[in-house]
Amino acid sequence: MVKSRQWLLANKATDLPTYSSENPNFKLTETDLPDPKDDELLVKPIYLSNDPAQRGWISTEADPHRLYVPPVEEGEPMRARGLCEVIESKSSSHSKGDVVFANCGWSEYFVVPAAQCQPAPDLGGGMSRTLYLSAFGTTAMTAYFGLTEVANITKDDIVVISGAAGATGSMCVQIAKKLVGCKRVIGIAGSDSKCKWVEKLGADVCLNYKSSSFAEDFRKETPAPDGFANVYFDNVGGEILDLVMTRMARFGRIAACGAIANYNTTSDKATGLKNWFEVIQMRLQIKGFIVLDYIKDWPKATDVFKKMLSEGKLEIEGGEHLVETKFEDIPKTWLLLFDGSNQGKLITALK
């Protein structure tokens, strides 16, 4: 039996989650874990993936009948995926000392079924294993399938990408420009420095949505009629989605990936859409998707990314925001997702 500290969900969240208030959403505790049984592993998280989707799993409005994964229930460890070291193995498929992907949660140690863990061998060439969470990870898969399968982008398209400096958006920029060769790629990010990085990744232009002239600048970059956007990869929803809809070309396609603008508010206070008629008059197609819909094809996408990397078409420098974190500060690092401070993939590196 192993003692393990865990961050539990104490209360479901209605707005920005807390871990140190009088009535926190997360609570640090210690528990005794059972010994692993046959075909189970005892693992220790090394790196944790931080994803906006986790916010939806702890919402007071989360309807288990409509979520694509079960919500985290109060009293359970906060769920997360990460790279973990195998401390003890009762499985022939993994050995002590191996590094694996696992649904480990915010737990110092975790017992997991071996069948639910994937090997994460050394990538070689001096590359960090953290690339399994960033350039080769779930967010990269989201970018790839959202653009190629949902939006069906072509080299003739003008593509707009919100959250372009984030983990998914930064991969979208490179896929659209360097892999598909789209005619024009317009990024949207939250600071001038992030915009410069997005342009370095390949965007023709990147606009700072916090600028007072953002709406005007965006209209100038999407002039009628030939400069209208054919594709919008939407990571944020809210007012930016509302604006982009007014600059979409006829028969434009919108891949609805996320809505982080409204994640930390209840539905009655969420920003709504004023320009919905654009969907009708411009015959727009809006398609929501979850990357798990394409999981059987992930190996194919991984091969594409490795080829891009070998050909110098995939920029990984600056694409990870690694934060060295004490176990007791895990929620603090996760909350960086919602203040716009991270560039690229936000990864918790446990001390």
Rank of each mutant, 00 (worst) to 15 (best):
T266Y: 01
W298E: 06
A140D: 03
C172I: 02
F228E: 14
N25P: 03
H65M: 11
T222K: 00
G146Y: 02
S91H: 12
F305L: 11
D35L: 10
T154E: 12
Q116T: 15
K27T: 03
K274C: 02
K12A: 10
C206I: 03
K307E: 15
K220S: 13
P299I: 13
G105P: 05
A53V: 10
K326S: 14
G238L: 01
R283I: 10
R247E: 05
L133G: 06
K269R: 13
N275E: 09
A259H: 02
F110V: 12
N152K: 15
L16Q: 00
N11I: 02
L337V: 01
E216L: 11
V72Y: 01
D156V: 07
A259G: 11
F136I: 13
P52T: 08
P225W: 08
F218E: 06
K274N: 13
N50T: 15
G105K: 06
T138A: 07
L131S: 09
G181C: 08
L48G: 10
M308N: 05
R55N: 10
V159T: 08
G312F: 08
T18P: 01
M308C: 10
R79N: 09
S59W: 06
A151W: 02
S21P: 11
Q174K: 08
E73T: 10
K194E: 11
I46K: 14
E199I: 04
G181S: 08
S134N: 14
W334H: 14
V244Y: 03
N264H: 12
S170D: 07
K194F: 07
N235D: 06
F145L: 01
V236T: 13
I46F: 10
W106Y: 06
Q54N: 13
L346R: 11
S310H: 01
K3A: 07
P24F: 09
Y68M: 10
L335S: 01
Q118V: 11
P17N: 00
K300R: 14
G125C: 03
R66L: 09
D98S: 00
Y232W: 03
D98N: 05
K313M: 10
W276N: 07
V236Q: 10
N342R: 09
K183F: 06
P24W: 02
D329P: 04
I240D: 04
D15R: 13
W7I: 01
M127I: 11
D32T: 15
K326A: 12
R81L: 12
A229L: 00
G288D: 05
A270R: 09
N103A: 14
G163Y: 03
Q343K: 05
S91F: 07
G258E: 04
V2Q: 11
T222D: 06
Q116F: 12
I280D: 00
G187L: 04
Y19M: 05
E149K: 15
V173I: 04
M78K: 02
D303S: 15
G344M: 09
V111Q: 02
A301H: 06
